[in-house]
Nucleic acid binder design. Structure first.
Length: 690
RNA sequence: CGCGGAGUAGAGCAGUGGUAGCUCGUCAGGCUCAUAACCUGAAGGUCGGGGGUUCAAUUCCCUCCUCCGCAACCA
């Protein structure tokens, strides 16, 4: 197929939080590289993005924060949109699924399938909260586990015994959000009968797209082999696009039904506003000479390869004329971890794009470079700040930035910043130029195969070639005897520099812009990559500036400190009170004689790490008690004068050669620190506690 | 439970039925134009464990272990 244009979609980020490095590495950076690459080649491209603003989680967040759902999605849509802009993700359109255009478009789309008889309607019994008037999703239902009988199992799984459950199995189910008891209520929904498209999908994917990435192909095959089932495309919710059918009040389109339609409605929004530049939306979606590519993460594979294509196919069956195209490829990435742990929005375990942009101003390209160099293209990968620093300092600064600086400084030193004349070439010059000429083919081959990591490495090899060329030809030595030869060498070095600006534009657009400016040249089309006459002899260069700067340890340490703090907060939040001990009774308790006494003296026991020695006024002549709490009280003096509780009838016990006559009661905090117990108002020393 | 993906030098990743590669780091040497940057060379791996097929297995098959996804949040 000879395609005339490319439609690039990137998964719609969910407006429930900012975007983080996982989103960037998985979807937006590769999609942006691809879009910039094709534009550089002069190919018509439309790069679609937008916020996904429906679904349940935004409503939960709104309730938690006491604001409206609209306020939640407004906040995150704006934050996400501006972050992408600052980061240089070159969307042609970035809209949102709460837009009027989208509501109407998705509604019409549903209606077309409905009128065409493409849905099956089914009534089922679902759990319902009488007080909040809502049906609950599996995960929001909790109850006693039928297997291990522990409390608080979820509707889909018991975390104690690991059993997979359905909500019906739970004993005494309740609403996980508010604890309300639940009843069963009949509700009716529309289902997309994926099973009817099984044969068609098998043909299209398993036979027709064997070139898809193994993870994508394998996932599809797994679903198809397991047999597809009808999938509900409506939900009982008050947030979303109302189901455009009479008698469907209180029901909205399932978020996964409306979100991918957002790709289309966002395209329409753009084309309606800029027909001069982008033409009609139908050209992008319903012309078979358009090639569509979905950039997604691995968790979205089933929706983009099975559900959405089936929706489009069903729509096509309802229409005589216009027919939607299907994706030509769905390059899906695996996941990126952060410092060894999976990225999590709810646990705040992430590097947020907006925070990165604030913490590292002007360093968009560093993050782009690192996330591409370590992109999870074939398996989950790990992002570490140490790696981020190393790649910046050892690769961007030392190899790319340094080469540019060398070429610039030498030219200014020997030729007042003018591009010198290229004289006669020797074999080594020709060999170097031949390698330069080969770069384009290698990078293109990799980009066409969505191998961005390797493509960027190939681009970096051009900078390596430049460094090696300078090291081998030694123009600074030549300059002492043969200035013409020096000029030839520097001409070649500068041509390599100009080529670097072209080849890195899709990957590092900010640096390329800066490099173009330094070389004082117009942006060149991708097609000129490999040319050796990008800069003419006599052309005046600007003053050299550093393309990249070293990142110091302190900046990295600040990020690590932040993560350590978050980890600690998470651990504290995850802390649960220990299980109750076996039942006891008042008689057993009464055997312990707990008294109050005032601390007269308190000091560390010599040669002991943990022991503090107390002298207590117990109202009975005083006693000595040892307590293993020294590590929680670096300054024992703070305890002097305090009234503490202690067990008075334990047999004496010798520790470190000192006899302890009782036990001071302490509480163990969640971080392991011990805190002595005391009384809330002064009492007479020696009184009993009971 | 099941299904899909992954497990390869200190770190991050390629790759292939026939003596195991890249980048960074490490070590040694060279160079000094350059952001102590650059260039050259070396060391470093029983390719997750076990079994099988084969003249030959890291690559094919079986089995087990670990991580991720399908399955809250979420790329």
């Amino acid at each position: 197929m000879d395609y005339k244009r490319t439609l690039i979609t990137s998964a719609l980020p969910y407006a429930n939080g900012p975007v983080h490095i996982g989103h960037l590495a998985g979807v937006y950076i590769p999609a942006d590289i691809y879009a910039r690459y094709l534009r550089g080649k002069g190919r018509p491209v439309l790069f679609v993005g937008g916020s996904d603003e429906h679904g349940v989680p935004v409503t939960i967040r709104a309730r938690k924060e006491g604001i409206t759902v609209q306020q939640v999605v407004d906040r995150y849509h704006e934050l996400i949109k501006s972050s992408f802009e600052r980061f240089g993700i070159s969307f042609d359109v970035y809209s949102r699924t709460t837009s009027d255009i989208h509501h109407k478009f998705a509604s019409d789309f549903f209606r077309t399938l409905y009128d065409g008889g493409k849905f099956v309607q089914q009534t089922t019994e679902q759990f319902y909260d009488e007080e909040t008037h809502e049906f609950l999703t599996d995960r929001n239902i909790r109850g006693e586990c039928p297997r291990c009988h522990s409390a608080g199992a979820y509707g889909d799984q018991c975390e104690k015994c690991g059993a997979t459950l359905s909500p019906d199995e739970l004993i005494n189910p309740y609403n996980a959000v508010n604890g309300n008891p639940l009843t069963k209520r009949a509700t009716s929904h529309w289902y997309l009968p994926l099973d009817k498209y099984q044969g068609w999908l098998e043909q299209w994917i398993l036979e027709g797209h064997k070139e898809w990435r193994t993870n994508v192909y394998g996932q599809c095959k797994s679903w198809l082999d397991g047999g597809l089932h009808p999938r509900a495309v409506t939900r009982d919710l008050d947030w979303g696009i109302p189901v455009p059918v009479e008698g469907a009040e209180g029901k909205v389109l399932y978020v996964w039904f409306d979100a991918p339609i957002g790709y289309i409605s966002n395209t329409k929004e753009l084309c309606d506003a800029r027909p001069d530049k982008f033409g009609k939306w139908e050209t992008w979606w319903q012309d078979e000479t358009t090639r569509m590519i979905h950039f997604i993460g691995k968790d979205n594979i089933v929706f983009h390869c099975i559900v959405f294509p089936t929706m489009l196919k069903a729509w096509n069956e309802c229409n005589e004329g216009a027919q939607y195209i299907l994706p030509d490829n769905v390059p899906s990435n695996e996941f990126l971890n952060l410092e060894g742990d999976k990225i999590s929005t709810s646990r705040n375990w992430a590097v947020w794009l907006n925070e990165y942009l604030d913490d590292f101003p002007g360093k968009q390209d560093v993050l782009r470079y690192v996330l591409t160099a370590n992109a999870p293209e074939t398996k989950d990968n790990d992002f570490t700040w140490a790696d981020f620093q190393a790649r910046n300092n050892n690769e961007l600064v030392a190899i790319y930035g340094n080469f540019i600086n060398r070429a610039m400084v030498l030219t200014h030193k020997y030729f007042e910043g003018r591009v010198p004349v290229c004289g006669e070439l020797n074999d080594y010059d020709r060999q170097t130029l031949a390698e330069l000429a080969g770069i384009r083919g290698r990078v293109e081959e990799l980009l066409d195969a969505f191998r961005f990591r390797d493509a960027q490495r190939e681009a970096m090899n051009l900078a390596r070639l430049g460094n090696k060329y300078l090291a081998d030809t030694e123009p600074w030595k030549q300059a002492k005897t043969d200035l013409a030869r020096t000029g030839t060498i520097l001409n070649i070095a500068l041509q390599i520099a100009a080529n670097l600006a072209i080849v890195f534009e899709p990957f590092l657009p900010f640096s390329s812009a800066s490099l173009y400016e330094m070389l004082d040249m117009e942006e060149h089309a991708w097609e000129r990559l490999g040319d050796t006459d990008l800069l003419e002899a006599g052309h005046q260069l600007r003053e050299p500036r550093l393309l990249f700067e070293k990142i110091e340890d302190t900046a990295i340490q600040a990020q690590l400190d932040r993560l350590a703090r978050i980890k600690k907060e998470n651990e504290a939040a995850a802390w649960q009170a220990p299980a109750l001990k076996a039942e006891t009774n008042i008689e057993a308790f009464d055997k312990s004689d707990i008294r109050v006494g005032t601390v007269l003296e308190c000091q560390k026991v010599k040669k002991s790490d943990k022991l503090l020695q107390f002298k207590i006024d117990d109202g009975m002549g005083g006693r000595t008690i040892l307590s293993g709490i020294a590590q929680s009280y670096p300054d024992p003096q703070v305890l002097v004068g305090k009234q503490v509780l202690f067990i008075a009838n334990f047999p004496p016990r010798k520790m470190m050669g000192i006899e302890s006559q009782g036990m001071i009661l302490s509480a163990v905090n969640d971080d392991g620190k011990l805190v002595v117990t005391t009384v809330s108002a002064p009492v007479r020393n020696g009184v009993q506690v009971g």
